[in-house]
Design a protein around this nucleic acid. Sequence first.
DNA 1: CCTTAATAGATAAACTTATATCTATAAAAT
DNA 2: ATTTTATAGATATAAGTTTATCTATTAAGG
Lengths: 223, 223
Amino acid sequence: MKNDPAENQESIKAIPEPTLRRLPIYYQLLKSRLNAGSSEISCTTIADALHLTAIQVRKDLEITEASGKPKVGYNIKELIAAIENFLGWNSKSEAFLVGAGNLGSALIGYQGFKEYGLMIIAAFDNNPAKINTSVYGKRIFDIKKLSDMVRRMKVSIGILTVPAQYAQESANLMTEAGIRAIWNFSPTKIICRPDIVVQHENLACSLAVLSKKISEVAARRIS
Amino acid sequence: MKNDPAENQESIKAIPEPTLRRLPIYYQLLKSRLNAGSSEISCTTIADALHLTAIQVRKDLEITEASGKPKVGYNIKELIAAIENFLGWNSKSEAFLVGAGNLGSALIGYQGFKEYGLMIIAAFDNNPAKINTSVYGKRIFDIKKLSDMVRRMKVSIGILTVPAQYAQESANLMTEAGIRAIWNFSPTKIICRPDIVVQHENLACSLAVLSKKISEVAARRIS
DNA sequence: CCTTAATAGATAAACTTATATCTATAAAAT
DNA sequence: ATTTTATAGATATAAGTTTATCTATTAAGG
């Protein structure tokens, strides 16, 4: 059951997350090389630029089903298209954002997302001072309207940027309304039904890793 | 050399990153339970709240050297202090931020960091329209002044929130000035000397993971 | 036509992380 | 005071994932 290559129950061969996380890095490099006038690139070149090994790069790119030519490498445009296709970045996705605070507003204004096919089309908040105002051209609605609008506009992605104490209830509101995936930037874990995709983006967690790295390096300097 | 427990070269027994990333989650939960009036908490309770196993929670908390009592659990205040101490969050760290765009401004205004001992004391930009203005009470300086100020104020942490094409040169500027750790929010990888701590916080990478999860779930629904 | 260099595919090794088991301890209940 | 029970603490096992190695193949260049 383990080594059986014909596990046709899903045929989706779990993609390693580290690979997934490297793809956007390749993507960014490819775009920059394309702008610089290149048309082909080899694994070796990519690996050198990113301080990785050529083998790893090749294995990562393998899963996008992109095909390169021996002695030449990959066609950059094709490779970009393969990554976009693999990640689903070639089709547009619409998202609602809940919690129009500092971080929420920044995400609304962040131009980078549309490059990846993600469009934040509206925001929601419970603060009367913010309701019916606009941030970077996006209207902020009363959180009470979320449910209706999710249903009407069939939005399936929710971005959560509320304080910790409101995170779980906001997530519940979203999923009950029909949101299928939550990108959670609040500093707490949220628990959702198993069919809901939840991606945690907790700055405190990253800061913990950074803090520890710093103190380790500091300790090494002393010794 | 591998199984030798007496590898006294560093004695720092590498902390698993997943453990490190869970600590802030525990931390947040503990603070909320403390506010709710509790004074003790057991691994089982923590595990139930966060949908983890008690064994894993206990093992995670072990590395902070916190100590609990059988039949009762951990003293919440002590556990909070142990986590803070372990992560170095009980001492203040000062940071400079480079790139006062949307995301940069949001991070400047984000109140959460000071809870973890991180203080953004100034920001830098190359845009004349922004230089010498203030964001959430923090002055924005000319990027040309970065080097001097890092040296004078002995700031060792830099937060990088510039567009991809400026990321590497900004990082170079930082490290040459004496910055020891970079928290990189730009959508590209930066390459630094081995003694520099770099923590990548690439939203595109996270979005890739989210996108793939969504398409996998979508595929599962069809079948 | 032959050599070179790069990709493709398959297999093997290493590492990390998670889980389970066992013992000791301390508080609560009888 | 003794028994019970739940939890921490420590060690060992297992699982899973990632990375590396090896061989074959293909296209370009001399």
